[in-house]
Amino acid sequence: MRALIQRVSEARVTVEGAVLGEVGPGLLVLICAMRGDGPAQAEKLAAKIAKLRIFQDAEGRMNRSVRDLGGAALVVSQFTLAADTRSGNRPGFSTAAPPEIGEELYEYFAARLQAEGVSVATGRFGADMKVALVNDGPVTIWMDSEA
């Protein structure tokens, strides 16, 4: 699985003008299941993200996790993280998991992150979502369960 993690002051996702998920200080996690991924990859990534120390401590060093803060995570599915741009000008997405597997792993990832002690809000898999955020820092981290 691939994830793009952004430390945020706030973030929200809307579909057709309705807010589906919203968080204050914490993380925006854009997540993509790749072909061949399964529950093990979702568990590994959720555990790593819950413990990722990208929030400042009293000395101003990135030494605290979202879990340490009592922060929340907005988890949004984004198959475009699987983009292959090696040839041509139009990205290919053949490395993304098929939609039915992608949705299952997206939901499983969100549940595993919640089980790691992080409050989780979500978008809607496959929907045309609008994501608004205030990136804090800015801090943006790319993660891959296979890296």
Score class of each variant (00 low, 15 high):
Lys48Ala: 05
Ile31Pro: 04
Gly88Arg: 10
Thr80Pro: 13
Gln41Ala: 14
Glu104Thr: 14
Phe93Trp: 07
Ala33Trp: 04
Gly70Asn: 11
Ser87Lys: 14
Gly38Trp: 02
Lys48Glu: 00
Gly26Asn: 07
Phe109Trp: 07
Gly92Ala: 12
Ala110Lys: 05
Val66Lys: 00
Pro25Leu: 13
Ser77Glu: 04
Glu100His: 14
Leu105Glu: 01
Ala50Cys: 09
Gly70Glu: 08
Ala97His: 05
Glu22Thr: 12
Gly71Pro: 13
Thr95Asn: 09
Pro91Thr: 07
Arg86Met: 09
Asp57Glu: 08
Glu43Asn: 05
Leu52Ala: 05
Leu69Cys: 08
Phe55Glu: 00
Ala110Tyr: 08
Thr80Cys: 12
Ile49Gln: 00
Glu107Tyr: 13
Gln56Phe: 08
Leu105Tyr: 01
Ala47Leu: 05
Ala18Asn: 11
Ser87Asn: 11
Gly71Cys: 13
Pro99Phe: 04
Pro39Leu: 10
Ala50Trp: 03
Gly38Asp: 06
Ala47Ser: 10
Ile49His: 00
Arg61Ala: 12
Arg86Cys: 07
Gly26Arg: 02
Ala82Arg: 05
Ala110Glu: 06
Thr80Ala: 12
Leu81Lys: 05
Ala72His: 05
Pro99Thr: 01
Pro91Tyr: 10
Thr95Ala: 13
Ala97Asn: 04
Gly60Val: 09
Pro98Val: 14
Ile54His: 03
Ala42Pro: 06
Asp37Ala: 05
Arg90Lys: 12
Pro39Trp: 04
Ala18Ile: 11
Gly24Leu: 12
Arg64Asn: 03
Glu104Phe: 15
Ile54Gly: 06
Phe93Ala: 04
Gln56Glu: 13
Glu43Met: 05
Asp68Cys: 08
Leu74Cys: 10
Leu28Pro: 11
Leu20Cys: 10
Pro25Glu: 15
Cys32Pro: 06
Leu105Val: 05
Ser87Glu: 11
Leu69Thr: 03
Glu22Gly: 06
Glu59His: 13
Glu22Trp: 11
Leu27Thr: 01
Phe55Trp: 04
